[in-house]
Design a protein around this nucleic acid. Structure first.
Lengths: 181, 181
DNA sequence: CACTGCATGTAAGGCGTTACATGATTGA
DNA sequence: TCAATCATGTAACGCCTTACATGCAGTG
């Protein structure tokens, strides 16, 4: 029942490039990758343990400083196989979008309600901030064209996120302009 | 703990225009509204009961045919107040996006992997289908300009959904073209 | 008379968020 | 030394999906 455990495959995918700790994965989700997938550490750590138990990955410890141990995870053949299967499978049905901003607009429903203008201003500010962050990341990582080819997937999702924000802003500003008439 | 119960406010918003049955609400979610909010009937019916208990809405029955009873719900003053409060509140933080398509691309990471082309073809087909449906709805509902003004919220979210699909398709086709080089 | 849609409900269980918890390391 | 970050865990709980269930109404 319920949803598919996509986090498992995401983790397998990340580990297929290099060994990582749970904390590393958490940090990845806090960067641009988080624009497309995110999980809290409280979900990541138990998931990693489950995956070790089922033989998809293995674990080894490393010591930092005097006492602290980090646990790195390595993908196992069985894990590689499951990852390859998942990548081959057709995409799952799109999950429903739940967009609070749009719902509020829909429910207000009266062009003259002053709350509508406030909503647009708020939403535009949010997306402007996001866009700036993404653009700074692009500059930092992919100014060199060679990097774009080397990290195809990464460059592509970052481009996509930037375009998404640009388009959203464009739409928001158009609708906002209509309100002024 | 956990998320906010937005469904409650969505239901209040829908009931603020007219009395509806649980089934009516379910049907609304299956139309364009479902592009921005969706719940299964197994969530809607219990939620309505809870809302009656807490005094936000009231219920009355109507008989259809010989035996079948439908239950309509009416918004109460307390419900109107809570709805107004919610509409005034600033937007909640954006929930994380979880996009399986983009994750697969990110993880494949090799421009030459034949799976990438397959993925694009699949995703493009999905969005083309969606766009066609949305465009047919727009024609049906809002060819008359007067309707656009009368149902501001509805027209707006439909326009937004159409634009979203157009842009997504544009991006997908651009990336697809790049793969051919 | 059969089939599609109307209409309403409950149950099981996974996914995800928020909160609670602890301790080590590093750099200012 | 003090704060921020590294690093890892558990617990509670709500949201949401999937599945199971039942029966009436209207149309061909």
């Amino acid at each position: 029942m319920a949803q598919k455990n996509v986090l498992k495959y995401v983790v397998l995918g990340l580990l297929s490039h290099q060994d990582l700790t749970g904390y590393d994965i958490k940090k990845l989700f806090e960067g641009e990758l988080g624009d497309f997938w995110y999980s809290n550490h409280s979900q990541i750590y138990p998931e990693l343990k489950k995956m070790v138990e089922s033989g998809l990955i293995s674990a080894y410890d490393d010591t930092v400083g005097q006492k602290m141990t980090k646990t790195y995870y390595t993908i196992q053949p069985q894990g590689k196989a499951e990852l390859a299967d998942w990548l081959k499978e057709p995409l799952n049905a799109l999950p429903p979008t739940r967009d609070e901003f749009s719902m509020k607009l829909y429910l207000l429903n009266d062009v003259n309600d002053p709350l509508i203008k406030k909503l647009f201003a708020e939403e535009i500010a949010r997306h402007e901030e996001k866009l700036q962050y993404l653009q700074s990341r692009w500059k930092l990582l992919f100014t060199a064209k060679a990097e774009q080819k080397k990290h195809y997937g990464h460059a592509m999702i970052l481009r996509q996120a930037i375009r998404r924000e640009e388009w959203r802003l464009q739409w928001l500003r158009e609708e906002q302009a209509k309100l002024e008439e």
